[in-house]
Design a protein around this nucleic acid. Structure first.
Lengths: 248, 248
DNA sequence: CCAAAAGTGTTTAGACTACACCCATGA
DNA sequence: TCATGGGTGTAGTCTAAACACTTTTGG
């Protein structure tokens, strides 16, 4: 009984049947913000099970390909530029009947992008990809393929935790941004309102969160006082973290 | 280009070669505290690559077996009782050459146990399992199999984060414990010293962290004032979290 | 001048640190 | 009575929440 692990791990001649092998896919959950709404890049399946339902972009890794590279590749074609996309692993999903065809394990990565221009990326061709707003993909009517509704719920939680504990929110802003743009990132992700004054101080008092940007492009097209421009700093930890609570 | 995901995911007749299948194992990292030292349950490989080196207990899941169940099974035989073991997923490890034999993906779970009695579990038979102290398995001399040194490092980080943010530390204590026993859990995990008075208040002021236990078994065998006994509460979140820093 | 947005000051409340201090037991 | 470990009280500090206030623009 105590050698139960060695029995499985030390097969010098592994059998190629479904006791020792499994189907493996890597997926990427890419967040962005569209019209002040937290949104997720999804693709519509056009064949196989769950046809015409939506999933996180994914693929099977190549034999010598790292899991994260595979996840990055799964969404690279859908994103406009060679974005310096940083992915973090959410985890592995492997419930036995999550895929009706066969035992399947999916490793999920997630990241953020300041903007996603699907039209540019697709070069005008029709695409089965869409950027779906939070309110839509969390509604009961939205049709996720496989267990991707659960995964989407988990990955939103991971994003929110990252926003409270790190300075990752700057990666959801353009290269130069104002304090209220940064604030609206938090308001979109948590679907809540943030006190502007205290937010301002908390961010400025966190070393490395932001750096001042040259006010060269300040055009002051708004009504009020023209804002200062900032650029993203390093990815630093917030201590203590924000205490935002998601309202949905 | 934009349908790159569909190409891989929607094969109704998946080919059984190493492009679409991979070897999968589930492992459990079980922490416990032995003589005030954070320790990890490890097994020595007795065949295959990395023979006589140490790994987290693991196995290949059965076709219809959930990943977490498989991880639990991998260490169940090594633990004395049917401990109500709660496992959390750490993540998936799948670097292409982490196993010299073939492409291999390992999903790691972790949990804590108040005590591990290997002799009782093995029923007196010789076992290839050992509870290894932190100072030993983090030393340069210690020989981990595969990439399990990286995994061990990551899982210690996950444990420490859980201790700062939740009340999981009570699960590393016996059913009834004193405040200083609980405190020594933190001191062992973070290899640091904790101010007793402030620790006491922080724990008592967190609703659900602990509940008073009947002082029936108080035997007051020590020198000083007899301590109160507590029992574990629910697994609650600490807000704000502890701010302990690991000293190693 | 007024409205609106940006940014700063000020007050209050909560929580941690540090350290002093009481409590209850064994020797 | 003293040493020892358990537990509480308290002052100083740091931070955040709430809200008033100033600054700078457009109409």
């Amino acid at each position: 009984m105590v050698t139960v692990d060695a029995e499985a791990l030390s097969e010098d001649e592994p059998r190629v049947d479904d006791r020792v092998v499994s189907h493996l896919t890597c997926h990427a959950a890419i967040f962005t913000i569209v019209e002040d709404q937290l949104s997720l890049l999804l693709t519509e399946r056009n064949q196989g099970p769950f046809r015409f339902q939506w999933e996180l972009p994914g693929l099977t890794p190549q034999p010598q390909e790292d899991l994260e590279i595979a996840a990055r590749r799964s969404c690279a074609a859908l994103l406009d530029t060679n974005w310096p996309l940083e992915l973090q692993q959410l985890g592995a999903y492997g419930h036995p009947d999550r895929d009706p065809r066969h035992r399947s394990v999916s490793v999920i990565y997630w990241g953020v992008a300041a903007n996603i221009d699907l039209d540019v990326a697709a070069g005008g061709e029709p695409s089965n990809a869409r950027v779906v707003a939070f309110s839509e993909f969390t509604s009961d009517e939205f049709r996720f393929a496989f267990d991707h509704a659960d995964i989407a719920s988990d990955v939103v939680r991971a994003l929110r935790r990252s926003l409270t504990q790190t300075s990752i929110a700057t990666q959801l802003c353009p290269p130069a941004f104002t304090m209220s743009q940064l604030q609206s990132v938090y308001e979109a992700v948590f679907n809540t309102s943030v006190s502007a004054g205290n937010f301002h101080r908390k961010v400025r008092n966190t070393p490395g969160f932001i750096y001042p940007a040259g006010n060269s492009t300040r055009e002051s097209i708004g009504k009020g006082r023209p804002p200062q421009l900032f650029q993203a700093g390093e990815l630093v930890a917030l201590s203590p973290p924000f205490t935002f609570e998601a309202s949905l």
